[in-house]
Design a protein around this nucleic acid. Sequence first.
DNA 1: AAGCGTATAATACATGTGTTTGAATCTCTC
DNA 2: GAGAGATTCAAACACATGTATTATACGCTT
Lengths: 219, 219
Amino acid sequence: MSDDTRSRILAAAGAIFADCGFEAATVREICRAAKANLASVNYHFGDKETLYLETIKLAHTLKTQQTPLPPWPPNTAPEEKLRVFVRTMLQRMLGQHDLCWTSRLMTREMLQPTLASKPLVEEFIRPQFDMLLSILDEMLPPATALHRRQKIAFSIIGQCLHYRISGEFVAILIPEDERRAGFSIDDLEEHIVNFSLAALTELARDPAHSWKYTPHGKA
Amino acid sequence: MSDDTRSRILAAAGAIFADCGFEAATVREICRAAKANLASVNYHFGDKETLYLETIKLAHTLKTQQTPLPPWPPNTAPEEKLRVFVRTMLQRMLGQHDLCWTSRLMTREMLQPTLASKPLVEEFIRPQFDMLLSILDEMLPPATALHRRQKIAFSIIGQCLHYRISGEFVAILIPEDERRAGFSIDDLEEHIVNFSLAALTELARDPAHSWKYTPHGKA
DNA sequence: AAGCGTATAATACATGTGTTTGAATCTCTC
DNA sequence: GAGAGATTCAAACACATGTATTATACGCTT
């Protein structure tokens, strides 16, 4: 039963921290939501801050075990891998409403990094990022500079992330009926993969960029 | 001089609200930063919340007048318009360190919408969004469905926004020397425009998508 | 059944918060 | 220059929060 209230507190804290942020969330609210006594957070975790860190660790764990890096069959086409990657990312961020506090929590960490950010990136984000890079490797000319591959990776990640971060703004910009019609997770997956593969195809076809783009309007 | 402290408070509040969020920011800290008395916030604004709303309005105003929708010469190529659009967006979000609290504030509103979000979107975001849509209109097959154009617009916006939102994570992922070498605003502008134009070119060249992508892995 | 360690509960305390107050100071008009 | 209104200031208030303390109930060994 000790473990019971402990994990109840963790779950409640996850959702509330994700909603309100560390400072705005109150121990009292968390305990009320967890149906636990006010003192239990102090008993089980010492103080509010280590409860927060513990919550982030949990988000970590849940995320990785809930959607592990999928092991592809040996000869999977990189296009297919990219599709699965995008799908997984969107699913993690927009699907699973009961567990989506994990991504909201990570989003908060992005915006306002705490001490937990660095290990979070190293243990959870970087493997994903490297995997995306390796997928791109298979589709790009072998001599493509590292920083180019990184920026392409960020372009793909940014497209996915946008619907988590700016979801509320999207909801205001696009009327609901239209949103239901063309902005389901499947729709977004199709679009992002289409868009990104189109870009990669064209970049591979014409690495010199026929429209001769140059930075400062002197084109 | 009344107006002086009033605007000093507004400026300080903007930066601090952007850094800490509404709840975590304290009136005392704001007044200390503004070199104003603690009571002045209440005298000039009534309470903390209307100070916050006033701050958002100011962010609004500053942003629109600082980088107004640029009026293109009549026959500007859409590619060039897109370039300027992306550049403006990046510049607003990453450049101008003294005024970048405005975009951080808006980012916060995205993540945790308040009552101010809706007017913010309608008055400030939607015009930009519509302008981007009209630029895309010039480059896409005329029959392109609205929701496709919207998603393409979000793909471009998402790429730009990513460096504001996840900037800290990018900073951890990419070692500093590499970051300096390939992730300046100019570099990002070039990449995002390249990537997006490549996608648009390929989508226009082959609207049926030669790699025959279909959503559920049955390709 | 007694005693012990553990988990929970209710309460108390110190601190920091937004807000208010009333006097002091400044600014401008007459 | 005097007075009235506007503005600033230091201090205080009421309240909510994180944390600590104490007491009680439970499960387990002996």
